[in-house]
Amino acid sequence: MSVIWYECKVKYRKTHETGEQKVTTDTYLLDAVSYTEAEARITEEMKAYTNEDFRIMNIKVANFSEVHPFENSDRWFKSKVSLVALDEESGKERKTNIYLLVQANDVKEAFENTIKAMETTMGDYNIPSITESPILDVFPYFTGEEEQLEKYKVIDTASEEKVEEETEEEVVS
């Protein structure tokens, strides 16, 4: 079953670093099977996040194919990826656009993280645009099953390098 991501805009009173309270509207992303479940889930998440009253201003289906969190990153970027395929009948190239939500600290890192996210792709692709997303946080649905955790796996580059080193050592042994 494919995941449906919902963008939820929530208006609430937020205390800033200066101690000043201002009404702000923030965007969050979560996966759900319906608008009703999305509303219930964002309500629960916001209750844990703030003690203030809040209003859900908007819920809409997001057009993300995949969400890729990365450790030590604090912002979310929307990467447009054009998958290139050759149409055998006409002999022309066909492009299909997909959108990934990638966590990074800046646009350069978002580009690198998009390439990491696409490394298992067999076909050709290019990345025509990367823009910073207004999404503040992502709340994936976890059932506790290993399969669920795989779809939202935090990529830790340091541990990947360690695994590669251990694998190389096993081959040499």
Rank of each mutant, 00 (worst) to 15 (best):
residue 3 V to R: 05
residue 3 V to Y: 02
residue 3 V to E: 05
residue 5 W to D: 00
residue 8 C to A: 09
residue 11 K to C: 07
residue 12 Y to H: 07
residue 13 R to Q: 05
residue 20 E to I: 06
residue 24 T to N: 07
residue 28 Y to R: 04
residue 29 L to P: 01
residue 31 D to H: 03
residue 33 V to I: 11
residue 34 S to I: 03
residue 36 T to Y: 03
residue 37 E to I: 01
residue 37 E to A: 01
residue 39 E to G: 05
residue 41 R to N: 00
residue 41 R to G: 00
residue 41 R to Y: 00
residue 42 I to T: 04
residue 42 I to Y: 01
residue 43 T to M: 00
residue 46 M to K: 06
residue 53 D to G: 08
residue 56 I to T: 02
residue 57 M to L: 10
residue 60 K to C: 05
residue 61 V to Q: 08
residue 62 A to D: 02
residue 67 V to T: 05
residue 68 H to P: 01
residue 69 P to W: 06
residue 71 E to T: 13
residue 72 N to G: 09
residue 72 N to P: 08
residue 75 R to L: 06
residue 76 W to G: 02
residue 77 F to G: 06
residue 78 K to V: 03
residue 79 S to H: 10
residue 83 L to M: 15
residue 85 A to F: 11
residue 85 A to E: 12
residue 86 L to M: 15
residue 86 L to N: 14
residue 87 D to G: 14
residue 87 D to Y: 14
residue 88 E to S: 15
residue 93 E to M: 09
residue 94 R to T: 09
residue 96 T to R: 15
residue 98 I to T: 09
residue 99 Y to R: 13
residue 100 L to F: 14
residue 102 V to K: 01
residue 104 A to K: 03
residue 106 D to K: 02
residue 107 V to S: 09
residue 109 E to H: 04
residue 109 E to R: 06
residue 111 F to K: 08
residue 112 E to Y: 10
residue 117 A to F: 02
residue 117 A to I: 01
residue 121 T to A: 12
residue 121 T to Y: 13
residue 124 D to N: 13
residue 129 S to C: 11
residue 129 S to D: 13
residue 129 S to R: 15
residue 132 E to W: 11
residue 136 L to R: 14
residue 137 D to M: 05
residue 137 D to K: 10
residue 139 F to A: 01
residue 140 P to E: 05
residue 143 T to H: 10
residue 144 G to W: 10
residue 148 Q to P: 01
residue 150 E to S: 06
residue 151 K to H: 04
residue 151 K to L: 07
residue 152 Y to R: 04
residue 155 I to D: 01
residue 156 D to P: 03
residue 157 T to Y: 00
residue 159 S to L: 12
residue 159 S to G: 06
residue 160 E to N: 13
residue 162 K to A: 12
residue 163 V to M: 12
residue 164 E to N: 11
residue 167 T to V: 08
residue 169 E to P: 07
residue 169 E to D: 13
residue 169 E to L: 15
residue 169 E to R: 15
residue 171 V to W: 05
